[in-house]
Design a binder for these strands. Structure first.
Length: 190
DNA sequence: ACCGGGATGTTCT
DNA sequence: GAACATCCCGGTG
């Protein structure tokens, strides 16, 4: 079966519904590909942990835009993280891509992350995967249906029983179990 | 293995 | 001025 790009309609739903369905889909950025094995949902303007909680700003313009686009933000002075915008235009919902299993373009990933030894450390974190795939602030707003970064379905369905936990690295709304991952995958972040 | 701290700059209070 | 959806390195056990 040939892989097909996820259509706009896939994203036009609540981030809590989209997030677990993104597991086992494939993130494509130029020659680099990785299977999505860990995600977190950020539920929009009513979610205190979401960047959308404070309302529209220069940073969150993409997040509040139409679904199916890539929201990239800069954090800790040196890292980028990437999300798929979901829901309806104006809602500010998104799914953070937290880890991939590298599939293709590993040589280029290693050029961008020269200190990495094991393959499993190439893309096992939200900032690691952005560095490996060359996703930075210039990728913010990319259309995931038509742009140079896309998410495709290569026929592997999401897990029937994904791992599930609270979200990582946040300080507000820490109790909400909105992280999902592929159980047992060595590329899931620590 | 675990733990602590530094890097670095944008965003928000 | 503080916080930050993180990562890496060097310490100790």
């Amino acid at each position: 079966m040939r892989s097909s790009v996820l259509p706009r309609s896939f994203y036009r739903r609540a981030s809590l519904a989209v997030a677990p369905e993104l597991l086992n889909k494939v993130l494509v950025a130029g020659p680099c590909r990785g299977r999505i094995v860990e995600v977190e949902a950020y539920a929009g303007g009513l979610d205190p942990a979401s960047h959308a909680y404070r309302g529209l700003s220069a940073r969150t313009t993409t997040m509040f835009g139409p679904p199916g686009h890539l929201y990239v933000y800069f954090t800790y002075g040196m890292h980028y993280c990437a999300n798929a915008v979901t829901g309806e235009d104006g809602e500010g919902q998104a799914v953070l891509l937290r880890a991939l299993a590298p599939l293709a373009g590993l040589a280029q990933m290693r050029e961008r992350r020269p200190t990495v030894r094991r393959d499993r450390d190439l893309t096992s974190g939200p900032a690691r995967l952005c560095q490996a795939l060359g996703i930075d602030r210039t990728a913010d707003g990319t259309d995931l249906v038509r742009g140079w970064v896309r998410i495709v379905d290569d026929g592997i369905p999401p897990p029937d029983d994904p791992g599930n936990s609270v979200r990582i690295g946040i300080t507000r709304a820490v109790d909400r179990p909105w992280r999902w991952f592929v159980r047992g995958d060595p590329n899931v972040s620590r």
